[in-house]
Structures are given as C-alpha cells and as structure tokens.
Simulated assay, not measured.
Amino acid sequence: MSLSGTLVKKITVLSDGDVFHDIFRNRPHQISEMSPDKIKSVNLHNGDWGTLGSVMVSDFYHDGKAKVIKEEVVAIDEEKKLVSTKVIGGDILDTFKSFLITIQVETKGDENSVTWTFTYEKLNEKVEDPNSLMDLVVNITKDMEKHQLAN
C-alpha cells in the first residue's frame, strides 16, 4: 500500500467560474458566509489575501467535529485560474505528513468547472485516503454555487 496519493474531483458549476477563482484567490474569508455549516471562519494569519506566501487559518466542520487548518499559498496561476495551498498546521497533519490542495477553475463559455486536487502523503498505512475531506470541499463548492445563483 502506497503512502502517497492524489485525489481529484471535477465539479461542473452553473455560476460564473471567474467569480469562483476570485473567491478562492482573493476572498476565501467570504466562503464562511456561503457555507456557514461547513466553514466557521477563514482568517489571514500572515501576508495579504491573494498573494504567494500568505498564510490563512480556517475553522471548519468535518465528520461532525470542529477542526482547524493552517495553509500557505504556494502557487497562483491567473492564466490557468489555479491556486495551490500547502497545509502547514492543524488537524489534517495529525494523519498526513504532507498535504497540498489545488483548486483550478475552468471557464469555457457557459461551461464552468471547479477541480479540486489533493496531493498527500499519509503518516502510515492505517490512514485512509481523504475521501470524506474531498466530499466536504465538493459540498462547499455546491454551497458557493447556490449562493452565487441566488444573488
């Protein structure tokens, strides 16, 4: 059994893909307003929103428990509408040695999608793949879509 893995999920969205990218890059603190039952808060810990090296701390709910994640923005590609963060603290590192989250938005006319990619290394073979965490971010994406379509 491999300790390293990649998990990818692409979600088609009916709302404006450019808005998704802008939120993920520049306004992640507003996600808690769109998905309050899943994200309690996203706070800037260091740096400026939307810049490489900035660090944010999020309080969220996963598997019925309150959890924390601390992330550093390690890649931004405006052309590809991509943002990558490296988990540098919080509950995820209780079971994973490393965890990289990449969010890429594709916009092709009226067809938009959000692709989440988790690249990770487990601490040991007993750790399950982060499928429930992927389900969480998919549901947050759907909440964001509903919020955009309602406004």
Rank of each mutant, 00 (worst) to 15 (best):
T102K: 03
E111F: 08
K38R: 12
G47D: 09
G47W: 11
N151A: 12
V127E: 02
L136N: 06
N124M: 06
S41N: 12
G64E: 02
L149D: 01
E33H: 09
S113C: 10
M144R: 05
T85A: 13
Y61E: 14
I140R: 06
M134V: 04
L7N: 02
K65C: 00
D48Q: 15
D77A: 11
M56I: 13
D63T: 05
P130T: 04
R25V: 10
V57T: 12
K122V: 04
L14D: 15
I23K: 01
W116A: 04
D18P: 03
S54M: 15
D135I: 01
A66C: 00
R27V: 02
L149T: 00
N26L: 11
H21R: 06
P130L: 00
P130I: 04
S84C: 13
L93R: 03
T102C: 04
D143P: 04
D22S: 15
E128D: 14
S35F: 08
I101G: 05
L7R: 02
I11K: 06
D18M: 13
K70D: 01
Y120C: 08
V57Q: 12
I11S: 02
K122L: 05
P28Y: 08
A66P: 07
E33T: 09
G90L: 01
D110W: 07
L149G: 05
E145K: 04
V68C: 13
G17T: 00
R27P: 03
D110I: 13
K142S: 05
F24E: 00
K86F: 00
E71G: 02
V73S: 09
F24C: 01
S98M: 07
K81Q: 15
L52T: 02
K126G: 00
V114H: 05
M144W: 04
V68R: 15
G64H: 03
E106G: 08
I76K: 12
T95Y: 11
Q30F: 07
T141Q: 01
G5Y: 03
R27E: 15
P130C: 06
D16L: 02
